[in-house]
Amino acid sequence: MMSIRSQLLKGILDGCVLAVIEKEPVYGYELSQKLLNIGLAEVSEGTIYPILLRLQKNGLIRGEMRPSESGPNRKYYFLTEAGQEALENITGEWKQISKPVNQLLMGRREG
């Protein structure tokens, strides 16, 4: 069984990737750069590809090969309806958990 810790992380990562794709369709490298710019350096490189494959398999996103502005065909990812729903769910859960956790962890006495 997967540990709670890795399950939690997985859900949060899925949410981040879905949220980036929701704004506009992106291709793999573009997604990694956006995550990097947000400050999520840990998931900015090769680790996004297994995530993208899993999200595709679960029908939350779909990929489509399209010609890009600079020439080569690229696989752009779009959010599906199921992905939209999943993103709402993850956002809702995050709201519930982030406030108390923040209070608890950030409110610790220094020292």
């Binding site: 291709y27 793999g28 490189e45 990929g63």
Partner: peptide, 17 residues
Amino acid sequence: QQSEEVLMELLEHLLEG
């Protein structure tokens, strides 16, 4: 098809990197 698509993504990413 899916294998080749992901291989191409990895290659593009590697070339950019």
